[in-house]
Amino acid sequence: MNILVCISKVPDTTTKIRFLSDASGLDTNGVTWIVNPSDEWYALVRALELKEAAGSGKVTIITVGGAEDDPIIRKALAVGADEAVRIDAPAHDAAFVAKQIAAWVKENPVDFILTGKETIDYNGSVMGGMLAAHLDVPYVALVEKLEKSGNTTHMHRDIGGGTEEVEVEGMFVASATKGLAEQRIPNMRGIMAARTKPIHVTAPVDAQPGVKFKNYSLPPEKGACKMIDPDNMDELVRLLNQEAKVL
């Protein structure tokens, strides 16, 4: 079983977000980078479980980015991926990344591809679907359960207010959401082994982004919190109705 997992580098969840003075991008000073949680916790771990259950195969991680991504690639290798591919180009947008990964997959066939459900920086939920479209394979979004039997893959996907059970034959792209697997903390052996696992660096293909992010800003500060006496919930209801106008 030859599985490809797409991973993305994102700021640690505790990061206090700040922008450059011209609002053109994130101020990365002092930011700690992590593997995007749903890529690591759900997509990667489920891929490893499936490989382990099959008793053979390979889990490859792929990302689009510069050499500054190597530390988070090593982190994913420490969790258990066998090898890594880094397409050496800035990740302009999801459309650009999908074109790069699609081009790589066309040269290096895999059995199926998992991504996280969204990244915690741009929250687009876009890349996996675009990748599937470029590769002309089915796309199953927001998968919370995935089992293989031969060429058939059984999945449960979250449809918002419910779950759908689906099946596909052969190659597909799925985006992983909570429930698919449990986070694995890398152990010392994994961390040591990751140091010598290969990171294949490849050149990008020619591709254009579809969008550009700019004029970043922080949300307006909240005013002071109004404290309400716990024995006077009528007052809270009155305020929600008359002041906040949400009742």
């Binding site: 687009g124 939920s125 876009v126 679907g129 470029h134 796309y139 979004a141 979250d158 579809g210 969008v211």
Partner: peptide
């Protein structure tokens, strides 16, 4: 939403369109 997230990337590729998510 769950449906739009499943479809929008596929429409965008088919139309060669830039996609604004959310």
């Amino acid at each position: 939403d769950h449906t739009g997230k499943s479809i929008a990337p596929i429409v965008a590729v088919a139309m060669n369109a830039g996609l604004v998510s959310g």
